[in-house]
Design a protein around this nucleic acid. Structure first.
Length: 530
RNA sequence: GGGGGUGUAGCUCAGUCGGUAGAGCAACGGCCUUUUAAGCCGUGGGUCCUGGGUUCGAGUCCCAGCACCCUCACCA
C-alpha cells in the first residue's frame, strides 16, 4: 500500500469511529477509488493539489459578460478568452467530448472539453481522473452549445485539488439538518442559498458599520475575558487563567466597558461583540451570539431610535429586496419611522389593564394561568406584557418607558421615578433591540446594583458588585443614549431565516458519539497537563 | 425538564400485514464529440442510530438510551 493511501486511510478514520471505518465499505471504497485516481494524476506528472492559479475571473462576471455578447447557439466568441476556477458539480462525458459544470462562490458555468482542443494529458485527466467535488481551473473561449448553453470551451484544464470525499447528491444537496451544521463546509458548497445568506449577513454588518462610522461613531474592542461580568442578566460561562490562577467569565455584555469609554471621553463608540450566555438553546438562542452595542454621549434613547432606523435602512438598501420583506408567513414593513408606543398604552390596548392598577393586572395574570402570587408586582406586569403584547408586535415597533425595577442601568424619568427611559424594538413578535437613556448617577447605580443582587439568590456564578464601574461613574460619565442590537436576529429577519442556526456558520452541536466526546475530553485533559 | 416527530447505502429517499434489504444520484468497468437531473451495457456498496426484549423469524412490534428537528417550560 502506498504511503499516501495509508495516510488517507488513517485520515478517513479521524472523522468516523474505528468500527465504521473497518466495516463501512461503501464510503471507504469511494474514498479509495478517488485516491487511486489521485495517484494516477500524480503519475501523469500533475500535482493533484494544484498550484497558484492567477487571474481567475468570477463565474458570475463571465456569465454576465457572455450574456451581453449575444453569442449565437453553436458559435464560439473567438478572441473572448476566459479563465475560471471552481468545484466540479456536474460531469457528463459523451466520449470524446465532456461537459462539466464548475461552481465558484458566485455562480455556475458549463465547461466543454473536446479531445481535439486539449493535450492528451489534459484529456486523460478530464476523461478518466476527475470526480465530482474536485477543483479545476479552465482556460478557454466563451461560446454557446447548439442548445444555447453558455459554455467555456476549454483549451487548457488545470488540476487544482482532488477531493477524496464524495460530495452530496447533486440535485438535492445536503438536506440532513444535523449534518449541515456539523459539516457546514459541505453545506456551503452544495447548497448555494446558504452561502448567499452568509454573504447577506456580511453585507448587513458592513452596512451597519459604515452607517455608524458615517454618524461619527468609532469601533472599539473590549474584553471578552472579564473578572467580573455584568451589563445583562444572564448566566455566564466560567473559565480560568492558569498563570494568574484566576477565575474569569466570558462576557455576557460589553456594556460596562463601553460606558467606561464614555467616561474616558470617547463620545461615540460601538462594538460588534461576541457574547456568551450559558442558557438554553432554541431557534432564537445560541450560546454565543453577536451583540452590537453603541453609546452616544450627550444623547438619549430618542437618538437610539433614530440610529436604529438608520442602520436597518442602510442594511436593507445594501442587500436589496425593499422595505417590505417576508419573514415566514409574515410580511414586515421596515419603512421608517417605526411606531413609537408607550409600554403602558400597549398594555392597556392588548391586555386591557393599567400598570398602576396592580389588582387587575394580577387578575389578568391569573386568568392567563400565570402563578403570580409569589411574584413582585413589576414581574407580574411584565409577564402579562410578554404574554399578551409582545406576540402582537409584528410590524417594527419601539416600545418605550418600561417599569423602572426591570431596568437597573437605566435613567428614571425625571418627573416619574417609576418609569425607566428604555425602549425595546420588536419585530415579528421578538425583541431585536434594547436601548436606554443611560444612568450616569453613581449613587443610584450603586443602589440599583445592590437591589438587583439582593433580589436574586446567589449561586456560584453570581456577579459581584462592579465597584470599579461605580468609581468610573464617579469620575463623570456624560449623559448618553445606549443601544444593543441582536445582530443574529436582525440577520434572521432580513434574510427570512427561521432559525438562528441558519445565520451562524458553526452553531454549537453536541458531540455525535461517546467516542468523539471522549476524544474531546482527552484533548482538553492534555492541554491542561501541558 | 414535558409533549410530538425523525434516524435505512456516500447523498436524497421508498420499504405494505412481522417473512431473502430497495430506487435514483454518486462510485467502479465499458460505449458515446453538443449534454441539460444526458443515455446505454455491466459491477460493487448496508451495524436498517445504539442496547435489550417479544417471536420460529424484527428495518417493521415492545422497553431503555443517544443525536437532531418542532413545541412548551426554564432563562432574559
Amino acid at each position: 500500500m502506498s504511503a499516501i493511501r495509508q495516510c488517507f486511510r488513517s485520515l478517513a478514520g479521524v472523522h468516523a469511529t474505528e468500527r465504521t471505518v473497518l466495516k463501512n465499505m461503501s464510503i471507504q471504497q469511494q474514498v479509495e477509488d478517488r485516491i487511486t485516481k489521485l495517484e494516477r494524476i500524480r503519475e501523469l506528472g500533475i500535482d493533484p493539489y494544484g498550484q497558484r492559479f492567477e487571474n481567475v475571473e468570477a463565474i458570475a462576471e463571465v456569465r454576465r459578460d457572455g450574456e451581453a455578447r449575444n453569442i449565437e447557439p453553436g458559435q464560439h466568441a473567438e478572441g473572448v478568452r476566459v479563465r475560471v476556477a471552481g468545484r466540479l458539480v456536474l460531469y457528463r462525458p459523451t466520449g470524446k467530448l465532456i461537459f462539466m459544470q464548475l461552481r465558484d462562490s458566485g455562480g455556475v458555468i458549463q465547461v466543454g472539453v473536446s479531445k481535439s482542443a486539449v493535450t492528451e494529458q489534459e484529456f486523460t485527466l478530464a476523461a478518466k481522473l476527475l470526480n465530482l467535488g474536485d477543483m479545476i481551473g479552465v482556460d478557454g473561449v466563451l461560446g454557446r452549445t447548439k442548445t444555447g448553453e453558455l459554455t467555456v470551451w476549454a483549451d487548457a484544464v488545470t488540476m487544482l485539488c482532488k477531493a477524496v470525499q464524495p460530495p452530496p447528491e447533486k440535485w438535492h444537496g445536503l438536506k440532513d439538518i444535523d449534518l449541515r451544521y456539523r459539516r457546514r463546509y459541505v453545506d456551503l458548497f452544495s447548497n448555494p442559498a446558504v452561502q448567499e445568506t452568509f454573504k447577506q449577513r456580511s453585507a448587513i454588518i458592513d452596512s451597519i458599520r459604515r452607517c455608524l462610522v458615517d454618524h461619527r461613531f468609532f469601533e472599539v474592542e473590549t474584553p471578552v475575558l472579564q473578572p467580573i461580568y455584568g451589563g445583562a442578566a444572564a448566566r455566564p460561562f466560567v473559565t480560568h487563567h492558569n498563570t494568574l490562577d484566576m477565575k474569569l467569565f466570558l462576557r455576557i455584555s460589553p456594556e460596562l466597558y463601553l460606558k467606561r469609554l464614555l467616561v474616558g471621553g470617547m463620545e461615540r463608540v460601538f462594538e460588534f461583540s461576541r457574547v456568551f450566555r450559558n442558557e438554553g438553546i432554541d431557534t432564537s438562542h445560541n450560546p454565543e451570539f453577536t451583540l452590537l452595542e453603541l453609546y452616544q454621549a450627550y444623547g438619549d434613547y430618542n437618538d437610539m431610535m433614530d440610529i436604529t432606523e438608520a442602520m436597518v435602512s442602510s442594511a436593507i438598501e445594501r442587500i436589496g429586496g425593499g422595505y417590505k420583506r417576508p419573514f415566514g408567513d409574515l410580511m414586515i414593513d421596515y419603512t421608517p419611522p417605526w411606531p413609537r408606543r408607550y409600554y403602558a398604552d400597549l398594555l392597556e390596548e392588548y391586555a386591557g389593564v393599567k400598570p398602576g392598577d396592580i389588582a387587575s393586572v394580577r387578575a389578568k395574570a391569573a386568568e392567563l394561568g400565570i402563578d403570580q402570587s409569589k411574584l413582585a408586582d413589576v414581574i407580574v406586569i411584565n409577564e402579562v406584557f410578554e404574554a399578551l403584547v409582545e406576540p402582537k408586535l409584528i410590524q417594527p415597533t419601539f416600545v418605550l418607558d418600561y417599569p423602572a425595577p426591570l431596568c437597573p442601568l437605566t435613567r428614571r424619568k425625571s418627573d416619574d421615578p417609576d418609569i425607566a427611559l428604555r425602549f425595546e424594538a420588536f419585530v415579528a413578535g421578538t425583541e431585536v433591540g434594547n436601548a436606554y437613556t443611560e444612568l450616569n448617577d453613581p449613587r443610584i447605580q450603586q443602589e440599583n446594583f445592590q437591589q438587583q443582587l439582593a433580589g436574586e439568590k446567589r449561586d456560584e456564578t453570581m456577579a459581584v458588585m462592579d465597584e470599579d464601574f461605580v468609581r468610573a461613574l464617579e469620575y463623570g460619565m456624560p449623559p448618553a443614549g445606549g443601544l444593543g442590537i441582536g445582530v443574529d436576529r436582525l440577520v434572521m429577519l432580513l434574510t427570512d431565516s427561521p432559525s438562528i442556526r441558519d445565520v451562524i456558520l458553526f452553531p454549537l452541536q453536541r458531540p455525535l458519539s461517546p467516542a468523539e466526546a471522549e476524544a474531546q475530553d482527552n484533548e482538553l485533559d492534555n492541554e491542561e497537563s501541558v
